[in-house]
Design a binder for these strands. Sequence first.
DNA 1: CAAATTAATTGAACGCCGTCCAATTTTTTA
DNA 2: TAAAAAATTGGACGGCGTTCAATTAATTTG
Lengths: 196, 196
Amino acid sequence: MGRRSDHTREELRELILEEGHRQLSEVGFARFSAREVAKGIGYSIGTIYNVFGSYSALMLALNGRTLDIWLAFLEERLAGREKDRLDAAIEAYFDFALGHRHAWTALYDFRLPAGELPSESYREKVEAITGVIVREIAAVLPADARQHALPLARSLLASVHGHCFFAINGTFAMLGEQDPVGAAKARVAEALARYG
Amino acid sequence: MGRRSDHTREELRELILEEGHRQLSEVGFARFSAREVAKGIGYSIGTIYNVFGSYSALMLALNGRTLDIWLAFLEERLAGREKDRLDAAIEAYFDFALGHRHAWTALYDFRLPAGELPSESYREKVEAITGVIVREIAAVLPADARQHALPLARSLLASVHGHCFFAINGTFAMLGEQDPVGAAKARVAEALARYG
DNA sequence: CAAATTAATTGAACGCCGTCCAATTTTTTA
DNA sequence: TAAAAAATTGGACGGCGTTCAATTAATTTG
């Protein structure tokens, strides 16, 4: 088969990302393959390479999509919430990771080959999620401590991430921890307590 | 070539682990291959399978070796230290991860296929490292708060892990965090302050 | 000591993978 | 309508984990 006009380049890109994310969510990073995505949309492997150029570019785009979904999920959980917004954000972190286990895990399992850098748009997505946490932390800090919101947000994100990661990869189960979410909330509360 | 007697089964196991860990540390998990290890020790791929049975069993043994080295590293850093032992442990966490980047990363990049469980000996190694932290936390807690040492240790390990992970995978760099170790120490100190 | 048995080792074969690219076909341009 | 450009294919390549029949050496048995 030669040139087709079933889809524009943009449609094709969207088709691949849609099917790719579906498959990634289903089989997980270790079993994910670009060839299988091509099969799934009825195109050949070569077409994936036409559109994305490489496996890492595809993975980065898929992880970008996960970040998009994650951000939307987080904002939705916070929307309209009056009290305990940070706790809600922590719960959302865990719920998203547990509910999209494979996609979430792929965010960290996939590493760019040495020398390659994440695109600007990928960085923006990561920063957008961080931005939500910065905003929520700033909101609970006393006015004279607001300048600590960004460093605190980065650090508390790391703490929550560690708890979530151990919950998902089995480390906590191995060590007998039964309430990872509660532990994460406690650590965040202690950090904030310092600023009165 | 048929049966040889160059090495006993135990020697062969050790040979494979030695070379495997060397290669894993050099090329990282994504590029690591059992075939290449076989080449490295002058045996065929079949022999690796005779000794370990599968790729996951080999990886688990290699990660077990990393945990052994990590535990020894941690204990050595703490040996003879009088003050700020927990801070020293946190520094050791980061220093080990940074100094053995590929091996440390492989501990988390490699996931057992669904259904397989880590061996008892692997669990013991993880618990041994946790045990060090439990001990150090218990030592700084007031006597009437000692029962919190284990849950606190699990949780603070997760926090420190999150910081270390973000330091190594580039998330912190992306977000402008310049002092991951300092942030981790601050979070741990705040958690302990509560029992102060 | 010789013959039979057991154990270890090999490497080709299989079906995957990411990657590349010459050939083909359609669309667009001239 | 002819020429140029763009898109799509799928075979080829070298790699991977895994399996296993064949081979060879060590060990046991008679």
